[in-house]
Computed example of a mutant assay.
Amino acid sequence: MRFRHRRVAAAAALAAAAVLGLPACSAVLGGEESLVDADSLVVGVKYDQPGLGLETAAGSGEFEGFDVDVARYIADHMGIPPENVEFVGLNSAEREEMLISGEVDMVVATYSITPARRTQVTFGGPYYVAKQDVLVSADATDIQGARDLEGLSVCQSAGSNSVARITEGLGIAVEGTEQETYSDCIEELRSGSVDAVSTDNLILAGFFAQTPDAFRFVNNPFTDEKYGVGLPYGDTEACEAVNKAISRMYQEGDAAEMLDHWFGETDLEMVHSVPQFEGCD
């Protein structure tokens, strides 16, 4: 039986606990197995982000990118063979929902660790610390950093915090617009419907690498975006196993090879040292 099916029963236990007034954590975690006991995994990844998570052909179920490679590495470290790892495409707004519902067992999808998300999800990692940056049209040479976005339209994906980090975090007034995915934002930028797309530099570098003549990667980063591995809430054993895998991935040079493979031809300044973990409690 797949682990995700066992977690459906755990969700039912959670609902029952709410009805009976029992402590939810004890009702679920007391009878739920950890992901470290799984013999297969369903992993949620992005399907439209080149270099990170991209479905190679629509409906194929085959995915490629840095996040996909990281997920495979973690699964191998946990003793799960490649043939028992299934990838499912999702967008930013679906990550918590699909993890909590049990549709996926793990999420590796440019999933920034935030205090709000940690109330619903246990995060391993981070496996990479990206920085927010800006992508503009190739002819927008007057935009050299986030401050130059004042009064301009900036696109983000649904479920992202990117615009808020500019308006609330930096106090820069921009016109925020939202599309379902970042690939939709890129099309808005290409057509001239928005002035800029702002999100994590790994995401932007992947799109930039596809059509470097059409866009300009501002490459003036701000904020730290800690990419975590989303796990079922309370599964500290799996979190610890994931952190051990990430440490080995960097120490043995595999992370550097992955990053160079997917982003080596861009101007992105990449980090090859083990990130500081957030802790599994």
Rank of each mutant, 00 (worst) to 15 (best):
V136E: 12
S153V: 05
A164P: 04
I172V: 14
S153N: 03
N161E: 14
D139Y: 10
S160Y: 10
R147V: 11
T141M: 04
Q179A: 14
E168H: 13
R165A: 13
V163S: 01
Y182E: 00
A164Y: 06
T167N: 05
S137C: 01
T167S: 07
T167P: 06
Q156T: 13
G171D: 07
D139L: 07
I166N: 09
G159E: 12
S153K: 08
V136Y: 08
Q179C: 04
A158M: 09
A140D: 02
T141Q: 06
V163T: 10
L149W: 01
E178Y: 03
R147L: 11
V163R: 00
S153M: 01
G159S: 09
S137K: 03
T141S: 05
R147K: 15
G171S: 10
V163F: 02
S162H: 00
S160I: 04
E175I: 15
T177N: 11
V163W: 03
E168K: 15
V174N: 03
E175Y: 10
E180F: 13
V134Y: 01
V136H: 09
E180W: 08
S157Y: 11
D133A: 02
Q156Y: 05
V154I: 09
L135R: 06
I166D: 10
D139P: 03
A173K: 13
C155K: 11
Q156G: 12
G176M: 05
I166S: 10
S162I: 07
D148I: 12
G145M: 08
L170N: 07
D133I: 02
T177G: 12
G145N: 11
E150P: 05
A146L: 09
L135K: 04
G169R: 01
A138T: 08
T141Y: 00
G159A: 06
A146Q: 08
E178G: 06
A173P: 08
G159D: 07
C155G: 12
T141K: 00
Y182H: 10
G169D: 06
